[in-house]
Amino acid sequence: MKSKSLSGGGLVYSTETGRMCPGCRQPIAQCTCKSASAIPVGDGIVRVSRETKGRGGKAVTLVKGVALDPVALAALGKQLRSACGSGGTVKEGVIEVQGDHVERVMAALQAQGYRVKRAGG
């Protein structure tokens, strides 16, 4: 009779801390195994575009190509949203700012020293 290995099992949710990382067994917010490999590699150019697809005709300003870790990216997203006086989010390495704020976002990023290009039409 073969014994099952316990390496695939373990705690996946805790009522105190929420979801647990299967790799390092820490809460997702304090995960150490994914943070080292989560920094994206870009070409050094931040691309800012405006999009309305799938949003009921509402415009959203997208910021792509910022090579920062997720925590710093969220902080930059917060700065850009507050500079535009608008809401938004950070999803999969892309900062979304509600509304058509391409020029304002580009000016704010250039003031912080990023190389910025307008993408799209």
Rank of each mutant, 00 (worst) to 15 (best):
D43F: 01
S82T: 10
T89D: 13
G85A: 04
V12P: 00
T61M: 11
Q98M: 03
D100R: 00
A74T: 12
V94W: 03
L68D: 09
A72S: 15
S5G: 15
G88Y: 05
T61L: 10
S14E: 11
A29Q: 10
K58S: 14
G44Q: 04
V97L: 00
A59Y: 11
A74L: 11
D43I: 03
S7T: 14
T15G: 12
M20W: 04
V97S: 00
P22L: 11
V97T: 00
G93P: 07
K64F: 05
R19G: 03
L62P: 06
A72P: 02
R25G: 06
K91I: 12
T32Y: 00
G88C: 07
S35E: 13
S3L: 15
Q26H: 07
C33F: 06
G65T: 08
L11C: 11
K78N: 12
L68K: 14
A59E: 13
Y13E: 04
A38N: 06
G77F: 06
S7C: 09
E92W: 13
A38Q: 07
L73D: 05
R81M: 08
A36L: 08
A72F: 03
L6K: 15
V97F: 00
T61W: 11
S49L: 14
S14G: 10
A83W: 00
C24S: 07
C31K: 02
Y13A: 04
T17A: 09
K78T: 11
V63T: 12
I95Q: 02
Y13P: 01
S49Q: 13
G10W: 10
G9A: 15
A67S: 14
K78Q: 11
K53S: 15
A36D: 10
Q79V: 08
G23T: 10
K4M: 13
T15W: 12
A38L: 02
R50K: 14
P27G: 06
P70T: 12
R47A: 10
E96F: 05
C84N: 05
A36W: 01
G99S: 02
K78V: 03
P22Y: 09
S7N: 12
L76I: 07
V94C: 05
S14P: 05
G54I: 13
S37D: 09
I39D: 01
G18D: 08
Q79N: 06
K4G: 10
I39Q: 04
G9K: 12
G44V: 06
Q26W: 01
T89L: 07
V41M: 04
S35T: 11
L62T: 13
K91M: 08
T89P: 00
A36R: 10
K91Y: 10
G56P: 12
S3Y: 12
I95C: 02
S14A: 06
Q26E: 10
D43Y: 03
Y13F: 15
I28D: 06
L11F: 05
G87F: 06
S14Y: 06
G56K: 14
G65H: 06
Q79Y: 03
A38T: 05
A83M: 01
V66G: 04
S86P: 04
D43V: 02
A38W: 02
S3K: 15
S7I: 13
G54F: 13
G10Y: 09
S49I: 09
L76F: 08
L80E: 01
P70G: 11
